[in-house]
Design a protein around this nucleic acid. Sequence first.
RNA 1: GCCCCCAUGGUCUAGUGGUUAGGACGCCUCCCUUUCACGGAGGAGAUCGCCGGUUCGAGCCCGGCUGGGGGUACCA
Length: 449
Amino acid sequence: MRVRFAPSPTGALHIGGARAALYNWLLAHGPGDGGEARRGAFVLRIEDTDRERSTEENVAQILDALTWLGLDWDEGPISQIGNTPRHQEALAQLLADGHAYHSSATADDVRAYKARHGADRGFRGEPEASGAVRLHVPDEGQTAFHDLVRGEVSFPNASLDDPVIARADGSVLYNFAVAVDDLDSRITHVVRGEDHISNTPKQLLVFRALGVTPPQYAHLPLLHGPDGKKLSKRHGAASVQELRAAGYLPEAVNNYIALLGTGFAPDEEFFTMSEMAERFRLDRVSRSPAVFDEQKLRHINGQHLRALSTDELTARLEQFTGRSGLRGAVEISREKIQTLADFWPLAGFLFDGPADDPAAFDRVIGSGGGRETLAQARAALADLEPFTAETVESALRQIVERSGVKPGQVFQPVRVAIAGTTVSPGIFESVALLGRERTIALIDAALAR
RNA sequence: GCCCCCAUGGUCUAGUGGUUAGGACGCCUCCCUUUCACGGAGGAGAUCGCCGGUUCGAGCCCGGCUGGGGGUACCA
């Protein structure tokens, strides 16, 4: 099996594209039917025949996003524009064989043709001496294929326009280049988004004209935004880069987008890449579009985050935040965050001092006897030795017992004093990590307000 | 308009002729409990888009309809 992912570098790598790449990767990395460790090769090709919109920056960005996701390729990246000589050769062949012809017909001509022959009648041009190149489409029969996800799909040839496969300047167009490249790369399975399903008959016709056997096809359902429309920028984070910046883990992104459109097990949702590769099957892929739900991504991300060792999580958080020495804080925060981005707002006070939240201060310390209990806490902690989460806990709990108040009435003022807010990692652990000096200084500062 | 695809709670899914229609996210309640989470126990939420048909029996098979989506470039 040889599969490929062929993005066009006209923008960042979108989530939908990432999923197509992932499914191809899973296909190639799953165990082979004959017991091979790997089922096949994953080829990366850059669809850059549109010189106007393709940029080097976008290529670099896409490669970077794929690398971050861990979707490494076995061959490529192949630049489609780099195959121009081969495209021209194939084009000349079709022209010589009479499978294609020059035509100067414009979009208006095509419209006029349909007005005359019926809206469901595909355009048929007259061969001319020059102009763009169109492929001859038969008037009879169907161009059909067995889609590995959807089953039989067919298009009546009579309704298909003779597609333009090369511009008047001789440069080839997408549907032609794709077929030639898939042929040359010996691609056996084309797995791509459903937005390409109506391109498939055109490509099949190119293969037929070339007299070769086409690959098999599988069209994945599209990803939609909450409004039911194709996922795009206006739905928020729509690119892999944005997901990365939002603090999601690549393994969680892969897990979630793989789940969108296929289940791997009836009652399980947490999977590693190798588990997914092992279980992935095209015929298990859903045929209906799925709505991208960032809340569920957050949930899955939290699970992957907690599955990481503290050392590994620390390394990722230090990379993400650009700070170092985070291990202790990570240890006491890891149960409380869902994304890498959640960490700093929760634990940043341990490094940069308390957050500024006057409302929390007034509510917890500035009223209800908060100052008094805080002062008691200061006294209890001032000479505490050793200064560990355990000793801090028993010291503070003694205050609770002695004064007969609810635990929160003692813990919350301390929390606000050191963190500035009412949300933080466990209070004993936080105090212990800060150490006696800093804790006392922070309590004094709060008492002085 | 034309061509094509799709249709199970708000969302993602399991289910392939006989189930109290299962699970997950989200939401609600409770437990745990120092906040927030995590974890645990419950709960609300689906006439399986609609109408016909096949069948003793249909979410599952067939047809029509409706709704949604994609495509419709000398873009990819």
